[in-house]
Design a protein around this nucleic acid. Structure first.
Lengths: 224, 224
DNA sequence: CCAAAAGTGTTAGTCGTACACCCATGT
DNA sequence: ACATGGGTGTACGACTAACACTTTTGG
């Protein structure tokens, strides 16, 4: 490989995160407002250019910490975006990850060196975003639906436990369907992904609901 | 973004393909022998550096055509490999795709501008490969197993149709299991992915077997 | 004691699995 | 005619889906 070949010059790697949360049945995604060009003043997914001395996932976590203060979270690859002119600065290949977290576990920085605002925004109220981030987010939402059905991704939303009515609302909200309470409970338990605790918590009703947690090494099984 | 920041300099993108086929119940992968450094004379997956004026998948297809003559095939992303020193030349982020094809449809070039040999090699007889390609191939095989079970990936191996005994052997060979003939047939038909033709073909027995083909827009359903 | 949501069990239907016999062809 | 694999149907068990009543708590 000839490093001097101009076709190999002037390209970089963008790491991009579609980080979701669910609050009161509303699925939200984390976006920030850009302080500098390109796209100064526009909202965007948390993203940035990869350094040449860090791995992709580490670079993304660095960007997340720098721009929002959020750290120590699970993120997984979902696609590559490589249109030639997706960045106005130079050719950047976008590597996009998604994750889902309990927003209450973090203090979201509203302003940082490179951002002037940050917020969790309902996915049906997303403004125009910088770069190709609207397209990326649209794909992320589709992949999110598949992954909560086929893997234990939701364990990252509920590291402190959850009640059945609560997590059922999350499934129903993200997938846009409704489930029978009794069958939902049976199916989720039958995956072996979760176990009962001896805690209870009130959700919407007055009667307290049992708290469940995800197993440490929960196998990926189809949920719905 | 400051293009001059040295942390953004000297990095490139590698596109890598794990291209599989199945022949007489043996799963094989396409590898080439490298004509030039780095790793001159070593076997490797088909791969190369991405140009700054092409999309990732286009770059990979260009490399495949240049190095093997194979073109017009389906390839899908399966992972990113970004260890800092995975290439001795410079920092290269590897973007790895997998596919499966009917090798009889192509004439494999044994020597090209950048290769001195090429072959389909059984996955349990893979030599030491250049870069981190052994690791990448290992992951590709795992993902291949998942994708033939959960998607219609195998349609790309059988664009001209297949018989039940034939495709059953492929599933059994890749997954390392055996299935009951009658139940296999019922399950594959029940996915709606395939349909009968009026052709027949001999496979291993003397009695001719019906030829089936994959539907054009076959939904992704779990197969096994 | 009433309202509101949480918890539980049974039944019918569907799907997966196990299994045995006949069929078409080449030699 | 026989050997070889290809094609089909049925019965049993497991899982999925539909459905109604009782329980706990706050107000």
């Amino acid at each position: 490989m000839d490093k001097k070949n101009p076709k190999y010059q002037n390209q970089g790697i963008h790491v991009i995160s579609a980080l979701f949360t669910v609050e009161k049945g509303i699925t939200k995604v984390l976006i920030i407002k850009r302080k500098y060009d390109p796209y100064q003043g526009m909202w965007a997914l948390v993203s940035g250019a990869l350094y040449n001395d860090e791995e992709v996932l580490d670079g993304l976590k660095r960007e997340l910490k720098e721009k929002t203060g959020i750290e120590n979270i699970h993120l997984e690859l979902f696609n590559i975006f490589s249109s030639i002119h997706r960045s106005p600065v130079m050719r950047m290949v976008g590597i996009a990850y998604l994750g889902i977290v309990d927003k209450e576990k973090f203090h979201l920085l509203k302003e940082t060196l490179k951002t002037t605002d940050a917020d969790w925004v309902p996915i049906d109220k997303i403004p125009l975003l910088a770069f190709d981030h609207n397209e990326i987010l649209k794909e992320a939402i589709e992949v999110l639906k598949v992954r909560i059905r086929k893997t234990d991704l939701l364990k990252h939303l509920y590291s402190n436990g959850f009640t059945m009515p609560e997590i059922q609302k999350v499934y129903e909200s993200i997938l846009g369907v409704t489930f029978d309470r009794r069958n939902f409970r049976k199916k989720l338990l039958s995956t072996g992904m979760i176990k009962e605790t001896n805690r209870v918590e009130r959700f919407e009703g007055n009667k307290p609901a049992k708290v469940y947690i995800f197993e440490e090494n929960s196998m990926d099984k189809n949920v719905f």
